[in-house]
Simulated scan of single mutants.
Amino acid sequence: MTARTRRLAACVLAGLAVVVPAASAKDSFVAFRTPSGSIGCIYSLVGGVRALRCDVRGVVDPPARPKSCDLDYGSAFLLGTTGRARRLCAGDTALDPKANVLAYGHQRRLGPFTCTSRRTGLRCATHAGHGFELSRQAQRLF
């Protein structure tokens, strides 16, 4: 795992607004991307806190940036183990051209998250049914 990926994972967990202990040998980070390279994700498990962040390159019609956000808004998404997915105010990216590819038609389970890659986009959800469907054209959070 690169230092860049570890820094990004720390930012993901910071987005969950939790206190996270220093990384340990039990912590893990997994990066993957769609075959087009337009969507990249990082799953992190740090100090028992699990999170999934996915970013979309080139969102066609991004929402207005909130006044509270001085960084990029509308293309980064965060999913925790509870509650709905949400958009992030972020100055970094989960898009990693070196990440493993999740081929179209395939699924990947990471902790409580299941992601399915399709030509139409990426769908990730928790066991509780919260998640997101992402593509450049549309983003649905549930």
Rank of each mutant, 00 (worst) to 15 (best):
A10P: 07
A10E: 08
V12W: 01
V12G: 00
A14Y: 13
A14S: 15
A14C: 11
V18D: 07
V19R: 13
V19D: 15
V20M: 12
P21R: 15
P21E: 14
S28E: 12
F29L: 11
F29K: 11
F32P: 01
F32N: 00
R33Y: 03
R33G: 04
P35N: 13
P35V: 06
P35E: 04
S36E: 01
S44Q: 07
S44W: 05
L45C: 10
L45W: 06
V46L: 10
G48L: 09
G48E: 13
R50V: 06
L52D: 11
R53C: 03
R53K: 10
C54R: 03
V56F: 08
V59A: 07
V59F: 09
V60T: 15
D61S: 15
A64P: 09
R65M: 05
K67I: 06
D70H: 15
L71F: 02
A76P: 04
A76Y: 01
G80F: 00
T82M: 14
T82V: 14
A85F: 01
R86E: 14
R86V: 11
R86W: 06
R87I: 03
R87H: 06
R87G: 06
L88Y: 01
L88R: 02
C89L: 09
A90M: 05
A90H: 03
A90L: 05
D92K: 00
T93H: 03
T93W: 01
L95F: 08
D96Y: 15
P97S: 10
A99Q: 15
A99P: 14
N100H: 13
N100D: 15
V101D: 08
L102M: 14
Q107S: 15
R109F: 10
R109I: 14
R109A: 13
P112W: 07
P112D: 13
P112L: 07
F113N: 03
F113S: 05
F113T: 02
T114P: 13
T114Y: 02
C115A: 04
T116R: 07
T120S: 08
G121E: 00
L122K: 01
L122M: 00
L122P: 00
L122G: 07
R123H: 05
C124A: 01
A125Y: 09
A125M: 11
T126G: 11
H127F: 10
A128Q: 08
H130W: 12
G131I: 04
G131F: 02
G131T: 01
E133Q: 07
E133P: 09
L134Y: 00
A138F: 13
Q139S: 12
R140W: 05
L141A: 03
F142T: 03
